[in-house]
């Protein structure tokens, strides 16, 4: 006689397998009745996002604005003639005016970040813009800004992009930021002031526009 625990284990085992066998036998014949053809595959990757709220965006969609087009806005082609500056050029020397001879500005040379990569990213942004992929253009320019935060060309492109999109306030601020980096570079200075003028006009600030244009004119002299 087997011990009670073993008898119990055997009983459990028998029941365990009996259930499986019974289910197979009793249902096997009926399966064909329910066997419909295979249907769509289970989607592993696809998920519906129809219920999404609109994500916070910086402003209206990046599309061209007819109103801006009427203004003499500096276009990307104006910028294409501007090469990426050498990184030691932006305001590295103090001007010599004032009562006593000023001393040279201490240690302000800029780092040797790659100019090629910035040029590449700016080019890619231009291509994206030409393909009407404006958000991609913005992403490329921000990437360039992270690599070379002192590069005025990046701000010039970003500002022009936003102005073309009708985001005049943002465009003006970006131009101001760019302007802060080009102390002694009339080409960029002129461009940024004209861009500020166009942004102000877009905002209805005609007086501000005139002021900015006269600053641009001063630089041109």
């Amino acid at each position: 006689m087997l011990p009670t625990s073993i008898q119990f284990q055997l009983f459990k085992t028998t029941i365990f397998h009996l259930k499986q066998v019974l289910v197979i036998l009793s249902l096997g014949a009926l399966l064909s009745a329910c066997a419909l053809g295979p249907v769509a595959s289970p989607a592993v990757e696809e998920r519906s996002l129809d219920t999404y709220p609109q994500p916070v965006k910086a402003g209206p969609p990046l599309t061209s604005s007819p109103m801006v087009d009427k203004i003499a806005t500096p276009s990307a082609t104006d910028l294409s003639n501007l090469s990426v500056d050498k990184f030691n050029s932006a305001g590295a020397q103090a001007p010599t005016l004032t009562p006593r001879t000023p001393v040279a500005t201490p240690s302000l040379s800029l780092s040797l970040a790659s100019q090629e990569v910035v040029e590449q990213l700016v080019l890619q942004a231009d291509t994206a813009k030409a393909n009407n992929e404006l958000e991609i253009a913005v992403i490329k320019l921000q990437q360039a800004q992270r690599i070379a935060p002192q590069e005025p060309k990046v701000y010039a492109r970003l500002a022009a992009l936003y102005l073309a999109d009708g985001q005049a306030v943002r465009a003006e601020q970006l131009a101001r930021k760019g302007l802060s980096l080009v102390a002694n570079q009339p080409t960029y200075g002129d461009f940024f002031w004209r861009l500020i003028a166009a942004s102000r006009r877009y905002q209805g600030d005609i007086e501000g526009e005139q002021a900015a244009l006269s600053r641009a004119a001063q630089l041109a002299q």
Partner: peptide, 16 residues
């Protein structure tokens, strides 16, 4: 560490 990259704005002079 990247060297200080701040560009000097116009209208500022350094004096001893």
């Amino acid at each position: 560490y990247e060297k200080d990259e701040v560009s000097q704005p116009p209208g500022v002079d350094w004096f001893r």
